[in-house]
Design a protein around this nucleic acid. Structure first.
Lengths: 117, 117
DNA sequence: GGGGCAGGTTACAACATTGTTACAAAAAAA
DNA sequence: TTTTTTTGTAACAATGTTGTAACCTGCCCC
């Protein structure tokens, strides 16, 4: 392999690593797993207030997380011009692909919590 | 159901919820998923410096995370009286049960990172 | 006019987390 | 003797994150 190729490959690995890091940092933010989980449990579009209620956090945090998820292409946001406003969130195909992992992760968490009680 | 029973059940749910919360908060800490992942990838006991190198973080953070994992019964710590000190960490049975979830989660992360590159 | 609703945004103070630096201990190596 | 190694810990300043309270937009209802 030429030095140029090797450098390109290193750059690609570097890039992939930062993407992986970015995803992990995002997933590690508070309430992020909670949000993904409640949205995964119910395939129907979910409104802001419903997510907030199920996740049990402040509007600010929920709004921040949803914005981050949208920016990363994991949720779609659809606003309707009703009064009062209606906004629906749905998981994208990419996020739905996370479902088995999250199911299995939460199964583990719940099992563990059961045993610890 | 009597009121007393109902109260007991609520308390249990409450307790389970706090345990779930506690686990999720722990899993959401920085580098936590990274550590669990690198330890899951290699079933052999792993030394502090090796974990630090693979996860790429400061000693302080790695030490804090490992202490938290040990306190939660997810890793075992074994110190040998060698010079200089040797300390080995291994995942407990509980943590190993997390393996399929983590594998699948990281597969998703890596796939997603690939596509985004 | 005043109040309410959904779905936020903004500012800010309080709190939590991070990395850095310095330090330790103990024996072997230089 | 000084350095090196491993595995940390302590203190601290810098940085990041959180919730709260206030506010906003429409429009409808009283």
């Amino acid at each position: 392999m030429s030095q140029a190729q090797s450098q390109r490959m290193e750059a690609m690995c570097e890039s992939a690593r930062t993407h992986v890091d970015h995803l992990l940092v995002m997933l590690s933010k508070s309430k992020m797993l909670n949000i993904l989980y409640v949205m995964n449990c119910d395939p129907a579009p979910m409104r802001f207030s419903e997510i907030k209620k199920r996740v049990d956090s402040s509007s600010t945090t929920i709004a921040r997380r949803l914005a981050e998820l949208e920016a990363s292409g994991l949720v779609n946001r659809k606003a309707y011009a009703t009064v009062p406003a209606t906004v629906e969130y749905t998981l994208t195909k990419d996020a739905i692909a996370l479902r088995p992992s999250l199911d299995s992760l939460f199964e583990w968490v719940l099992n563990r919590a059961d045993e610890t009680v």
